[in-house]
Design a protein around this nucleic acid. Structure first.
Lengths: 345, 345
DNA sequence: AAGGCGCTCGACAACGTTGTCGAGGACAGT
DNA sequence: ACTGTCCTCGACAACGTTGTCGAGCGCCTT
């Protein structure tokens, strides 16, 4: 048996075919398929058997086209990178809740590219998704307004909506970064390196702001040589910190603003033989952070909780809740594991 | 402005509405939207403006219903757990390739549950996905036959198809496990612990087989006390290895069959203070395996490559390739990092 | 000037389904 | 026996789009 063997793609049977075989009208088949009342038990069985024999498969799209209240039972999830543990964990949490309602998820990655966000939203709208979960890459989502008015429920995650009024579930990034920084300051650190992604990315900017607030509140001013913003990858973070470690007066502690940057920082410290000498606190937890040596102290965002809240809000909207939009802010927590508690020399 | 504000969900404009505004027939709108020839430049612009003003959005489902060669431009990806780095990385690689063709991905997790596989396939078929990427949880996929005949392209990944003739991209698990085991044997280890998931899971069984082959070839026989199969989680692996470490004659090396089990093993060795004394080789790489202390030696499956191959095969089928099915087997590679090179005492 | 051709454009049916409505038969009440 | 009611079931239109076909018009050829 070969894969194509004559490309014998017989067209799929329709309700008409099932009806013909069962000797009824196709409307009766529709009733049976949708479990509607008004069909006698005998006919019902006959129709089910005919459907079974023909391998009939309901066509959700045709059904939707005709229905008075169309529901594609599909939502889109536009995250930053479904391969990254943060987005992946979030996607999984979303899936768990939505599947209970038979809702499928179209997942895609934006990679912080504004054009990609707009293009993917268009694709999702063309597929008439019932809802959209968006971790935005643009700084203005007013283009969503008309689609929202047309009935597409939208929930923002990790970042706030701009130019459009929609629900959101975010994390207190400023507070989390402040807490992490204070944690280092309290142990006596004054030369604290800051590794951040682009500050134009909302979460990145907020974390930098939290760091600076805490530093300012402690009356410590931050030399430019210990600040690197705009780091886009683990490798960039590693290189940046490696350079800082070669300074005449290297940092005694590091705060890194995103999980990949933390990994780069760990590698740099390891390479410099300073992993046990220089303190490190990262924003965002990741698998295995606890088995590193020393174990990594992090500000943890509860990804499962984030996904739960998003799913909860989205489902309420899908079910017709039209109350004012809600902005849930989750408090991250400092997970103390060792790397953040190394004292200054 | 509140989220619902009167639930003013005006129905979406259709081609008819656009046509009325542009003063043409709706068929002309269809031509413009689909970039078909036969419309004068002037009209084309007028129609585009009308569509713009009304926020017209093409309806892919209605389009598909009518088209002679329907293409939903959507494929399903049923993986084991989109939150796990293996599935997540694979999903991301798939997305990268498929997006170039404007194909969207419906992603879902099976968690090794056969019922879930069948239910999700039904949902995908109801949505008439063009293709299916399947990491199966059942041991018989003959139920797919009729849908494949009806035109749904299918590519299996990580595990072979059973009861159905379809393309697949897998990894040589037996060979990889054999190589890992030989690596430990060559360094003089004889008491090697084996941690495995359910052997009923194809990949799990193959890895156990590879391990046993290598042991048998070396003339070493494996005491039952050093074998634990059916481990479903990181915690289970940790507990199992912790118990082994308490044996009068504990293992001098460990082979773990899956990334989560390796993590459990690392924790157990760490807790027993044996991380630098007992060798460990894991099947499947994961982020940060290289910054563990000691860095983890693993059998790496190239996830990006796996995704590329799957996407390549799938796209060929989507484009009408009906040649015999193809079974690509990728060779995993041993990545030597330190943990696997610890000698026996 | 008549005929033919090519280019635009529109009328209409069809895709597979659901919503509406009415036809027909069984049965109860008078 | 007749009317009215309930229960099944089917005919038909409609959802938003694309495929087919033909009408209308301008322009070229003879």
């Amino acid at each position: 048996m070969s894969a194509g063997e004559g490309s014998e793609t017989a067209p799929r049977p329709t309700m008409r075919d099932v009806a013909a075989r069962a000797g009824v009208s196709f409307k009766t088949v529709s009733r049976v398929v949708n479990d509607e009342p008004g069909v006698s038990a005998g006919l019902r069985v006959r129709v089910q058997e005919a459907a079974e024999q023909l391998n009939y498969r309901h066509n959700l799209h045709a059904s939707n086209l005709r229905r008075s209240a169309p529901r594609t039972l599909t939502v889109g999830a536009l995250l930053q990178d479904v391969g990254n543990s943060f987005s992946a964990g979030l996607l999984r949490a979303l899936e768990n809740r939505l599947r209970e309602r038979g809702i499928a998820v179209l997942a895609a990655s934006l990679d912080e590219e504004p054009d990609r966000e707009r293009a993917l939203v268009r694709e999702l709208v063309a597929r008439r998704v019932d809802g959209l979960v968006l971790m935005p890459a643009t700084n203005d989502q007013s283009y969503l307004e008309s689609d929202r008015r047309a009935g597409m429920s939208t929930v923002f995650v990790d970042r706030l909506p701009h130019g459009v009024d929609a629900d959101s579930v975010t994390v207190d990034n400023v507070g989390g970064a402040r807490q992490a920084t204070r944690h280092l300051l309290m142990r006596g650190h004054r030369r604290i390196a800051l590794l951040s992604d682009l500050v134009a990315i909302e979460t990145g900017g907020q974390r930098v702001a939290g760091f600076r607030e805490a530093m300012a509140a402690a009356g410590v001013d931050q030399p430019a040589e210990l600040v690197r913003l705009g780091l886009r990858s683990s490798a960039a973070a590693q290189a940046a910190l490696t350079r800082m470690m070669a300074l005449p007066d290297p940092p005694t502690a590091v705060f890194s603003g995103r999980n990949e940057l933390s990994i780069g920082a760990v590698r740099a410290l390891r390479a410099a033989g300073a992993a046990h000498r220089v303190a490190l606190v990262g924003f965002d937890d990741f698998p295995l952070a606890d088995v590193l040596e020393p174990a990594l102290t992090v500000v943890r965002q509860d990804v499962a909780r984030l996904g739960d809240e998003v799913a909860r809000l989205l489902m309420a909207r899908l079910e017709g809740d039209t109350s004012s939009s809600v902005h849930v802010v989750l408090a991250p927590s400092l997970v103390v594991r060792g790397s953040g508690e190394i004292p200054p020399p």
